[in-house]
Computed example of a mutant assay.
Amino acid sequence: MDKKEIEAWLNPSECINVQIPNEIFEDFGKAEFKSFNHKCFAYAYYYLISYLYRNALYKGRTEQYSQHNIIKVFTGNKTVVSYITKNGGLLDQLDYTKTTTDYPISSYIDDDVVEFGLIKELRKKIPDLELNHSPRFSIKEPVKGLVRFNREYYTGTFYSFQNTHRIDVNRFISIVTDDRLGHVGLFIYGYISMMCDRFQSGYQITNIELGEIVGCSDRTIQNYTNRLENLGFIESTRRIFDNKLLHKVYSVR
């Protein structure tokens, strides 16, 4: 998909942005991804399914939000990442996703709490409801959006923004559709964004240190942060002490 197709697909002008749990970086850092690239794919994939679920975009033509189309946004080879996204796959094992045929087709606020109208509930209430939705159609439920602390419902990122970071969906689209950024650029941007939330005066770190934290080389960090900076998504300065350039200090624009 190109940028215009994804914008039409995600309808950012009428949808709500989502929060991502900060612990995702630590959890993914411990997981057995086959490569750094796959870890970045999983991060972008989780963002996307969270956005689709929170905005109940499945109420339209479900086939356009099939797992095939979602994965197609990030990779042309579904088989390569199937160990991450399949039923019982790595994200399911990490309790970040769950395969379900009961998906939201509406969302509403009740007593200041977001509630979802699920397809199975609606079919029970209106048995003769005419919906062009196959009962076999399944989605990946973003578990952390619903359940996060002590396995209790209403503790997820859809209800509490505690210890989370947010990426505006328009920025998400711009990053993942950029030929030199994609899901790797999104992962690095997401981590810097999280740290800038913690350090309001800027996040100070070297390329080597940042690479060690996220799991890639300092050259990769340099290439992607330079591109993010050139596109105006982040900015950086260097602090000088004793006539020596110190760590980069990042901020999100």
Rank of each mutant, 00 (worst) to 15 (best):
Y153K: 11
G117N: 11
T237M: 11
S174V: 00
F233E: 04
V73P: 06
V184K: 15
I126Q: 05
N87E: 15
K98R: 14
K248W: 04
T97D: 07
A56G: 06
I109K: 02
N77V: 14
S160C: 11
Y46I: 04
C40D: 05
G117H: 03
D178L: 00
I188A: 06
T155P: 09
E130S: 15
N22S: 09
I70P: 15
L186N: 07
I188M: 12
T101Q: 12
R238T: 10
S82N: 15
E152D: 06
N150M: 12
V176A: 01
W9H: 12
S174M: 00
L181D: 13
V184C: 08
Q19V: 01
Q162K: 07
E63Y: 14
Y159G: 03
D92Y: 08
V214K: 02
L94Y: 09
K140H: 09
K144V: 06
I119Y: 11
V113G: 00
L210C: 03
I119G: 05
L90A: 12
Q93T: 06
L118W: 12
N163M: 13
F187C: 11
D168G: 04
Q19N: 10
T101H: 13
I192L: 12
P142Y: 11
I173K: 02
Y53V: 02
M195G: 00
H165T: 15
L181W: 15
